[in-house]
């Protein structure tokens, strides 16, 4: 009787020590789930999800305040990844938040631009250069295609131009052949 109690106490102490040590040694800094969600989001910072950027949306998802299907630029693939990460069921994109569009960049028509700087203030990634009363240009490489600069422009001089396929960004396509309907169906 006493032996068994002692054994249990002994075990409890050992396990307690092990747990205690591992709690210190393998301590997880911060809440990585938000970072993980954020790394899946496309970082367009477009706000179509209803939050003022990707990080706030990621935080909202982590806190259960937002659904995983509110990000049009991330597309279906993004939703699948989020569903995998969070272990929840996949949902189709919520149409309220918009439709996925081909990746584009904003181009300022420099003839029309009046240099009002409103777009500069709207750009979430500081991809627009220019100062007051001087026409602006967009650093194409940095533009995420979020379209946030479109509404503030008083003279409608910004156009979204879809990125065209060229020899640089061109990709090999998925093989297509006539026969083998079964496996195609399975793959899709």
């Amino acid at each position: 009787m006493i032996t068994s109690i002692l054994v249990v106490i002994f075990l409890a102490v050992i396990i307690g020590i092990v747990l205690g040590i591992s709690a210190i040694k393998f301590k997880v800094e911060g809440d990585p789930i938000i970072e993980k969600i954020d790394s899946i989001l496309p970082q367009t910072q477009c706000g179509q999800c209803g939050f003022p950027g990707c990080k706030p949306y990621a935080t909202a998802i982590a806190n259960g305040e937002a659904d995983i299907n509110q990000c049009p630029p991330g597309g279906d693939e993004g939703i699948h990844k989020l569903a995998d990460l969070l272990g929840v069921e996949y949902k189709p994109l919520n149409a309220e938040h918009g439709e996925p569009k081909p990746k584009s960049v904003a181009i300022i028509d420099e003839k029309t631009c009046i240099g009002c700087t409103l777009c500069i203030q709207a750009c979430p990634v500081d991809a627009i250069l220019g100062s007051a009363k001087h026409m602006h240009t967009i650093i194409e490489k940095e533009c995420t295609g979020c379209e946030l600069c479109l509404p503030p422009c008083p003279v409608d001089c910004i156009d979204m131009v879809a990125i065209e396929e060229n020899a640089e960004n061109w990709k090999w396509k998925y093989p297509v052949y006539k026969i083998d309907k079964v496996s195609e169906r399975r793959a899709s």
């Binding site: 396509k173 093989p175 297509v176």
Partner: peptide, 8 residues
């Protein structure tokens, strides 16, 4: 093949 690629 619809998108013809090597090997030919």
């Amino acid at each position: 093949m619809i998108n013809l690629q090597s090997p030919f």
